[in-house]
Design a protein around this nucleic acid. Structure first.
Lengths: 342, 342
DNA sequence: TACGGTAGCTAAAACGATTTAGTTATCTTT
DNA sequence: AAAGATAACTAAATCGTTTTAGCTACCGTA
């Protein structure tokens, strides 16, 4: 059984294709289609179960009512919740979201953008990888709005973004640790190739300095990107039995690292907070449920999603001549959630 | 700046649109396009950054190289991992996946199917809700292949599916508990409106009977669907301080319920396994990391995803006259992972 | 009586690809 | 030298919509 097309409806209702189109798009009144014809068409369409072909519609109008969401990894809790809010938010504006994961791989990210672009999405929300700025500029040049989330390009202020104040967040966490008397604070981070991670790291250094605590470079552990779980676990374990051994607290700079951290401390029988206090950037179900519960710097996930969507919609609606929306980054604040691990 | 279309390439290369199309689709040799023209076209296309418009292509060919994946909730760990495998798997066959969540709401599920159908996806992988069989039959009638995962319609064997042997899984768990000496085994489930949950519940009853343990209906707790987190937590807490109080073990029939269970036992200071042993259907990071680690019946997520994809591809390739692939449900087995909670 | 206006539709182009059926020029063959 | 074959392309239809421009009756007015 083939799908019903607009001309099937036209034939059955005894009118032209244009008339059906007008009726289906609520332009019937404007086009002075008579009451009877409108009803006739509506009835036939309902009976035959007509659903307009969005490919054809998109081809003709140039709008697909679809936005592309590119995140690092959709199976990571942070991005999964984010995706869910964005999807719900998009629905309010009658947009559909299609999402994909870069796995933080620049090549893959490029491919994804290309794929979404070929599918003619109307706009993009992107968690960028390194080196993606050029590609994003091209999208903007094609008049496709883009909003960055979570990460940004300091040298490209013309790309709108919704960010968390990473520097302030880490500073708040560090102040808290120092206030509680911790002095030998270890830091576990991934490669700081992008600005948001650099901001977090910088806040660590600056807060230590501010309190006249000498910075011990051996207390800072960088886990390289692209390591599989097991390799990353080993790295952290090595750190805890080597350079990081006599730290009295450890600050994990991402949610994923924090989970690995829990796994390692559990395996090594490191007691929290007796042997080591623990703090993590970004929340996770596990942190709330683990014994002891783990303190975190929580990012306002819903708000990020909402603001990103608002910013995008604003730009999608901006057709032509009115004043351009501001491109200044939206900066939200992350909040310290103290729990038993400190 | 407008996008480059095939006719832009044709004009610049001084050939016809058809020629460009042949070159871009590797039909140049078959169509006897000369070496020089092929190179010319390829160069122009590369220089101008030509990317074919998939809407136009899909409209013409009737194939979008896209499959729709409908799950219950993409932010649930089980479905998130599943989605990731399916996406990776699809990529191998050069398909793109677009996914969406039903939140187990029949109306929403219908809308999602309708939306995907309007966007002309080539095939579907669906975690169905109650009452979705009719809608799915319609897709099949339109020659759009569908594969069910996780859930099924016992009265509709003609819809292919990839399932876990829920009955055997729960039986294995129950046998294990009984072997370890537990006799007052409580069960926490969601509404058993669909067959897969009914199978799990039935296995509970049957195993008890087999071991001549009397079934105490008060030990079976059903948490209604659609309850928000807090309400569901309260239900479980009430159960643990009421009817379920003197059970010596508790079996949670879904991953989500298990997480709520952990939260509740933690709050109520129920010691595991001293006060109560715990077992959960379906794994989760938390169960592996919690203290004590929680025993689970693990579903083979990757295999489900792979098999579903294989089954779908087989049907997508099946154009016309050859033998139809078998529709018999693929049944995989779930595996008991014993940990410290029992 | 002729003209303008309007109500109520329809024809046809366009969007960007794919694909079938030609067309033209050159080359073989007899 | 005529006919057929082949190499190397192209024209035009098509997919299912939207949208602009236009057509046809009929009515009112001067």
């Amino acid at each position: 059984m083939k799908k019903v097309s607009i001309s099937d409806i036209a034939r059955k209702a005894g009118v032209s294709v244009s008339t059906v189109s007008f009726v289906m798009n609520d332009k019937a009144v404007k086009m002075r289609i008579s009451r009877e014809v409108i009803e006739k068409v509506e009835n036939v369409a309902r009976e035959m179960g007509y659903r307009p072909n969005q490919l054809a519609r998109g081809l003709r109008t140039g709008k697909t009512k679809t936005i592309g969401l590119i995140v690092e990894n959709i199976s990571n809790a942070f991005f999964a919740s984010m995706a869910k809010t964005i999807e719900d938010e998009a629905k309010k504006y009658d947009y559909k979201v299609v999402y994909c994961s870069t796995d933080n791989d620049e090549t893959k990210a490029r491919e994804l953008i290309s794929m979404l672009s070929q599918r003619q999405v109307d706009g993009y929300i992107i968690t960028p990888t390194l080196g993606l700025a050029e590609e994003i500029r091209k999208l903007q040049a094609e008049n496709k709005p883009v909003v960055l989330i979570d990460r940004y390009f300091p040298e490209h202020e013309e790309i709108p973004s919704v960010l968390v104040d990473n520097y302030a967040g880490v500073t708040e966490g560090m102040e808290y640790l120092i206030n509680k008397g911790y002095r030998k604070i270890a830091l576990v981070t991934i490669e700081v190739d992008m600005a948001h991670m650099h901001d977090r790291l910088q806040a660590y250094y600056d807060t230590l300095k501010k309190h006249d605590i000498s910075v011990d470079p051996r207390l800072v552990k960088q886990v390289p990107y692209g390591y599989v779980r097991e390799a990353a676990l080993e790295e952290i374990e090595d750190f805890f039995s080597g350079d990081g051994k006599d730290s009295d607290a450890v600050f994990f700079l991402t949610n994923y690292l924090g989970v690995l951290g829990i796994e390692t401390t559990k395996k090594m029988n490191i007691r929290i907070p007796e042997d080591k206090a623990m703090l993590c950037f970004d929340d996770n179900d596990i942190f709330r449920l683990y014994t002891p519960t783990i303190s975190v710097i929580r990012q306002p996930i819903c708000e990020i999603g909402q603001q990103a969507m608002t910013a995008l919609i604003e730009r999608l609606r901006h057709t032509g001549t009115e004043a351009l929306p501001e491109n200044a980054p939206v900066k939200l604040s992350a909040e310290l959630v103290p729990r038993d691990s400190i």
